[in-house]
Amino acid sequence: METTTTIKPDERESVITTEQLTKRFAKFIAVDAISFSVKKGEIFGFLGANGAGKTTAMKMLTGLLSPSSGKASVAGFDVYKQAERIKQNIGYMSQRFSLYEDLTIAENIRFYGGVYGLSRTTIADKTGALLQRLQLEHARNALISSLPLGWKQKLAFSVSLLHEPAIIFLDEPTGGVDPITRRQFWELIYEAASEGVTVFVTTHYMDEAEYCDRVSIMVNGRIEALDSPRGLKERFHASTMDEVFVTLARPSA
């Protein structure tokens, strides 16, 4: 039997907690009193149909948007009063917001290291380690624009971890990426989580939902279900996460 002594997720501390977190835009309730928590080192899948409120919820959790009501703390900081501290303690990556195309790999690392206030020596050390880990030493002076999308995404992921954040938010990180690179990307996620980084990820690939420790599914601003992929499949008598998603996201369909 297993002899590992890893702590079970539910015994670990929570790094994201929300209580009745709500965002209204005029009369429209984009996020409707969501309450959940995410544990340290957990890979948390944040799913929902287009327009379900995922982006708004993520903006509140990353300190970019102030909630209308409810409570939330991220990495130990309050979303109302300590939004700047949150930004310093999280990493963020999406397909739309990535690296600077007309800077080289090394220049991007130096830039982001500087933004996060790392010292020159730290940046130099981290640059070497990062390039080695991704086997990109030979490409340190290559322009980002010359790299295939898959490499950009893997690099952007690693750069967003430069300042050793407690949590990384990934917004559809693998959209449009080829199937092999998509899997290599998930192995980077696994690796980061095994080192204690909490991963909060959105995706439209339902097979990727299976890689998460727990998955929440948002429908019309609410969290309709939250459990492990196995738990969700059992509860909805489904054989795949795709079926679970279809059942929940369009109850009428």
């Binding site: 929902g48 149909a49 287009n50 559809e172 959209g175 449009g176 439209h204 339902m206 795709d242 998603f245 279809v246 996201a249 369009r250 369909a253």
Partner: peptide
């Protein structure tokens, strides 16, 4: 269907 959720894709 790029960036479109699984249900809308169907």
């Amino acid at each position: 269907t790029t960036g479109v959720d699984a249900v809308s894709r169907k």
